[in-house]
C-alpha cells in the first residue's frame, strides 16, 4: 500500500470515529438540555479558529511549527468534521433569521470552495505535467506577446509576398482576437478541444484559396495557434489553482467575523449559559 493511501485511510478513520462519537453523544443527550448547542457551537468555533490558523502558519514559515503538509492534512479532515458539527449545531434545519442565513451561506461557501480546492490541487498538477510545454505563471503574458507578434508578422508579410490579403484578412477576422489574450477558459478547464479544432479547421479550409507559398505560412500559423492554445491551457489551470484560494480565504475571514458577532448576539439575547 502506498504511503498516500495509508495516510488517507488513517485520517479517514479518525474522521469517521470522531463523527460517530459526536453523533452518539448527541443522540444520548438530545432534548435533555439546550446545552449541546453551546457545546457544539464552541467546538465548531474553536476548530474554525484552528483552520484559519493555517493562514497565519503560512505567514511565519521560519517558526518551527511542523510541516505544512501535516497542517493541510489536519485542515482537510478537521474541515470536513466541522461539517458534521455544523449540521448538529443547526439540527439539520435551514436557518430562518437573515443573519443565520448569511452565516450559513458563508460557511457553505468556505466548505464548498475548500472541497473543490483540494480536488483540483490533487488532480490538476498531473494535467499540467501531462500536457507539457509548461511556462511559469508570471511568464505567460510575455510568451503570449511573443506568439502574437510572430503571428502578426507572418500575416503581414504574406500580403507583400503573395500579393494577396487572404491570410491577413483571416488574421484580422479570427486570429487577432485569439492571440490578444487568454481564450477558451472553460473549455480548457473541462478539457474540451472543440474551440481549438474549430479554429484549426477554419485554417485548413482556408488552404483551398491559397497558393503553395501561402500554405507554408498557414502551416506556420497552425503551429503558433497550437502553441497559444497550450499556453491558454496552462494559464487557465494555473490561474484556477491560484484563484480558488481567493474565495476560500476572504470568505473564511468574513465567516469568522460573522461567527464572532453570532456568539456575541447569542450571549447578549439569551441571558447567557444556563
Amino acid at each position: 500500500m502506498s504511503g498516500f493511501v495509508r495516510r488517507r485511510l488513517l485520517w479517514g478513520s479518525l474522521l469517521l470515529a470522531a463523527t460517530l462519537a459526536v453523533i452518539s453523544a448527541y443522540a444520548r443527550w438530545a432534548g435533555a438540555t439546550t446545552r449541546e448547542a453551546y457545546l457544539s457551537g464552541w467546538v465548531l468555533f474553536g476548530l474554525m479558529v484552528l483552520l484559519t490558523g493555517y493562514n497565519w502558519f503560512k505567514k511565519i514559515p521560519y517558526l518551527p511549527m511542523g510541516r505544512s503538509e501535516v497542517w493541510l492534512q489536519f485542515h482537510i479532515y478537521a474541515g470536513l468534521f466541522t461539517g458534521v458539527l455544523f449540521l448538529l449545531h443547526v439540527r439539520g434545519r435551514w436557518p430562518t433569521g437573515w443573519f443565520e442565513i448569511v452565516l450559513t451561506v458563508l460557511y457553505v461557501l468556505v466548505m464548498v470552495s475548500g472541497v473543490l480546492g483540494i480536488l483540483i490541487s490533487r488532480g490538476w498538477p498531473k494535467r499540467l505535467s501531462a500536457r507539457g510545454g509548461e511556462v511559469p505563471f508570471e511568464r505567460i503574458p510575455i510568451v503570449r506577446r511573443q506568439l502574437r507578434e510572430q503571428a502578426e508578422a507572418l500575416a503581414l508579410n504574406s500580403v507583400a509576398e503573395a500579393r494577396s490579403a487572404t491570410i491577413a484578412e483571416f488574421h484580422a477576422r479570427r486570429l487577432h482576437a485569439f492571440f490578444a489574450g487568454p481564450q477558451n477558459f472553460l473549455s480548457h478547464v473541462f478539457e474540451i478541444r472543440l474551440p481549438l479544432n474549430a479554429l484549426l479547421n477554419e485554417l485548413g479550409d482556408l488552404n483551398r484559396f491559397l497558393n503553395e507559398q501561402e500554405r507554408k505560412v498557414t502551416a506556420q500559423l497552425v503551429t503558433l495557434v497550437r502553441q497559444k492554445d497550450g499556453l491558454d491551457y496552462q494559464h487557465a489551470l494555473q490561474l484556477t489553482l491560484r484563484l480558488w484560494l481567493f474565495i476560500h480565504i476572504p470568505v473564511t475571514y468574513s465567516l469568522m467575523l460573522c461567527a464572532l458577532a453570532h456568539i456575541v448576539l447569542v450571549y447578549g439575547f439569551s441571558a447567557g449559559v444556563r
Binding site: 503560512k58 514559515p61 505544512s68 490541487s121 490533487r122 490538476w124 498538477p125 498531473k126 499540467l128 505535467s129 511559469p136 505563471f137 494555473q238 489553482l241 491560484r242
Partner: peptide, 9 residues
C-alpha cells in the same frame, strides 16, 4: 510535478 500545485509557498 504531479503533486506540485505551483502555489509558490
Amino acid at each position: 510535478m504531479e503533486r506540485c500545485t505551483r502555489c509558490d509557498d
